[in-house]
Simulated scan of single mutants.
Amino acid sequence: MGKPDEVSIYGLYGEETPEDDLRFVHIEAISTRSTLYDWQIKPHAHHGMFQILFLAGGGAKVMIDQGLYNIVAPAVICIPGGTVHGFEFFPQTEGWVLTMGDSLLSAGQDSRVRELIHPLLIAPVVLPLSDSPKTVTLISSMLDKIEGEFNLPQPGRGAMFDWMIQIILLEIGRRQQPETSGTGQKKRHRKFQQFRTLLEQNYKSHWTIEDYATQLGMTTSRLNRLCRTMTGKTIGTVIQDRLILEAQRLLTYTNATATMVAFETGFRDPAYFSRFFKRRTGLSPVEFRKTQEQRSWASPSGAQS
């Protein structure tokens, strides 16, 4: 059986980025592309690319997977590779879009840096900054300097990109840290991020709870307690949520049939997949697709950022 047509994938909206450009960095003003498309950026994803949007003025209606957010500047948004997202910016919104290859974020980091940055690579972040003028000033300053380096290349530009991007991500990572900063909480947070990484790598293979626990060196009951502490959900629910999210992406942004979506998400029996989907969402795959067709964000065609 053929694979479903994919969600529109770009390095930059409307452009093909060479797959071997692993340390790719690009920065531009939000208005540069958005004004070409009446400030509306249709749902899409970036393969192997991580993106930071910083809103310095104005605002946007933001779609990330199945979530909709109304964001007023100042705010920062982090979008890991593969995440479906779209924007409807307020006219004249100001800020930057910074896009980089995933490998740029994982090379040469010590454990303390990875602990803060790694969670940003797994799940999207929408972070209002109206209560943090120091963070706004820092991120604005770094993005301005990155834009200067980008437009006027000088010796050591790659290193400058590395350092300034890490500063931005470390600042965002700090803001995302749990309020309780004791050693026990940090260990739980780190272990949960390890689980999230494994989940991203193996959810389509339908790993069992025991598989994840064994790989993490934990008992299933301890892993379940960890998930409840961090998310308020059981580990089984967290695993199923990830499968449902991927199925919803495919049903919303591709023309894949329910059977194709079932096989693409690792189900061997399409009928069982349909029952599973309805049990979790209250709708059959076909009914869910019809509801998504009513949404203005549903079409993946057109411009993307």
Rank of each mutant, 00 (worst) to 15 (best):
2 G>Y: 08
3 K>D: 14
4 P>L: 08
6 E>S: 14
8 S>A: 14
12 L>K: 13
16 E>I: 10
17 T>A: 08
22 L>H: 15
23 R>D: 13
24 F>G: 01
29 A>L: 12
31 S>F: 03
32 T>Q: 14
34 S>R: 14
45 A>V: 05
46 H>P: 04
46 H>C: 06
47 H>N: 11
48 G>R: 10
52 I>F: 07
52 I>N: 03
53 L>Y: 05
63 M>H: 10
67 G>S: 13
72 V>L: 06
78 C>A: 14
79 I>Y: 01
84 V>Q: 04
85 H>T: 06
87 F>C: 08
90 F>R: 11
92 Q>L: 14
95 G>L: 07
95 G>C: 10
96 W>A: 07
98 L>S: 05
98 L>D: 05
100 M>N: 02
106 S>V: 15
113 V>A: 13
113 V>E: 11
113 V>W: 02
114 R>I: 07
118 H>R: 12
125 V>Q: 01
132 S>K: 14
137 T>D: 13
137 T>Q: 10
140 S>M: 12
145 K>I: 11
146 I>Q: 05
148 G>Q: 12
149 E>N: 12
152 L>Y: 06
156 G>W: 04
157 R>Y: 00
157 R>I: 08
158 G>H: 11
159 A>V: 14
163 W>I: 15
166 Q>S: 15
166 Q>P: 00
166 Q>K: 15
172 I>S: 01
172 I>K: 02
172 I>A: 03
173 G>K: 06
174 R>F: 00
181 S>K: 10
185 Q>L: 08
189 H>D: 05
198 L>T: 03
199 L>I: 06
200 E>N: 14
202 N>R: 13
209 I>H: 05
210 E>S: 15
214 T>E: 12
214 T>K: 15
218 M>V: 02
218 M>G: 07
220 T>Y: 01
221 S>G: 10
221 S>W: 04
230 M>K: 12
231 T>V: 11
233 K>H: 11
233 K>P: 00
234 T>H: 03
235 I>A: 05
237 T>Q: 07
237 T>R: 11
245 L>R: 13
262 A>I: 07
264 E>K: 14
265 T>G: 06
267 F>H: 07
269 D>W: 06
270 P>K: 08
272 Y>P: 00
272 Y>Q: 11
273 F>A: 03
276 F>L: 00
276 F>E: 00
282 G>E: 00
287 E>Y: 01
291 T>N: 05
293 E>D: 07
294 Q>T: 10
296 S>L: 09
302 G>I: 13
304 Q>V: 02
304 Q>R: 12
